[in-house]
């Protein structure tokens, strides 16, 4: 067996490097002098010099890139311009909240998505199948910033079951997680159903039936294991949309995560925090993709030699 894990890890590392350079260079795109934009035109010269030295902007660019890369690799994102506090603490808290939200959404999407898809494929063409497929079509084209208010309206304002926003009660997570998960859930349902139907008509399954295996045993042992392969790909790919959807959803529900931190920092013009948030979100996406690729090789023995 040819082992190509080093190549995968190396290309991921190259991606991390590239992401870092892009997020780093963005600050230099600011029209005019970044220091003056951050502090305002009327800032005292001594403050300008101090901030310039603090951000390392008085050094040549290759040195700046190298320095801040080594800093970030040590987990140091620098200080916030507004409060002067280290960004790292804020980022860690926000990351924790975002991951809780994303994992919850992932859990909802995978559980109900796979169940729904399997049921729809088993009862193909029936009333139940039509309901599942049509509602999933509805949820694919609904954007997060409309689904969120819609759920708020139905579940918290009219029915009064759940808190509208914030993070105070343990049930606050339900609405943002639902908002985030429904689009992904619909895609998983569609994918699972189509793959199941394709595989259920294949020769392998016909042989299994001819052997006299029970129908549910075929579904679990033969069909479902094959469905797992495209599912892993689609879940890995959709995780990115989950992360970018979290920006909108967190803003909507005031969930203290990376997205809210990003939006707030943009409004406050606190660029180091903006950079750190963008960097962390992009890196998480790369890591998830790396994880997906490795998982893919474990689940599908055919992929191991390629």
């Amino acid at each position: 067996m040819k082992n190509n894990f080093p190549i995968i890890f190396f290309s991921s590392f190259l991606q991390v490097l590239g992401i870092f350079i892009i997020t780093f260079l963005i600050l230099h795109l600011l029209p005019g002098d970044p220091i003056q934009v951050m502090l305002g035109e009327s800032a005292a010269l001594s403050d300008q010099v101090k901030l310039r030295a603090e951000l390392g902007l008085d050094q040549p660019i290759y040195k700046q890139i190298f320095n801040s890369f080594s800093q970030i690799m040590h987990g140091d994102f620098g200080n916030s311009i507004l409060t002067g506090m280290p960004i790292k603490e804020q980022i860690v808290i926000a990351m924790k909240n975002t991951y809780i939200l994303a994992l919850m959404a992932l859990f909802i999407a995978i559980t109900f998505g796979i169940t729904g898809g399997v049921v729809a494929a088993k009862y193909r063409g029936c009333f139940l199948d039509k309901i599942i497929i049509n509602s999933s079509l509805f949820f694919i084209s609904i954007p997060h910033f409309f689904l969120g208010p819609l759920l708020m309206l139905c579940l918290s304002i009219w029915l009064g079951w759940l808190p509208i926003s914030g993070m105070d009660s343990p049930f606050s997570i339900v609405l943002p997680a639902l908002t985030l998960s429904l689009g992904m859930l619909a895609i998983i349902i569609k994918m699972t159903r189509n793959c199941m139907i394709e595989i259920m008509d294949s020769d392998a399954v016909r042989t299994a039936r001819a052997k006299g295996m029970k129908e549910w045993s075929i579904t679990i042992h033969h069909v479902f294991r094959l469905v797992l392969i495209p599912l892993i790909t689609i879940i890995g790919m959709q995780f990115g949309s989950l992360l970018s959807g979290a920006i909108i959803t967190e803003t909507l529900f005031s969930w203290n995560g990376l997205g809210l931190l990003l939006v707030n920092s943009i409004q406050m013009r606190d660029y180091p925090i903006t950079q750190a948030c963008i960097f962390v979100i992009a890196i998480s996406y790369v890591l998830v993709n790396l994880f997906t690729e490795i998982l893919y090789k474990i689940v599908d023995p055919r992929m191991r030699n390629i």
Partner: peptide, 23 residues
């Protein structure tokens, strides 16, 4: 191709948000 994969590493609208935020 490396450049393309690099831009794809930013999920969804993150890159657009980054540039819009700075500009």
């Amino acid at each position: 191709r490396y450049i393309t994969t690099l831009f794809m590493a930013f999920p969804g609208i993150l890159l657009a948000i980054a540039f819009a935020a700075i500009l």
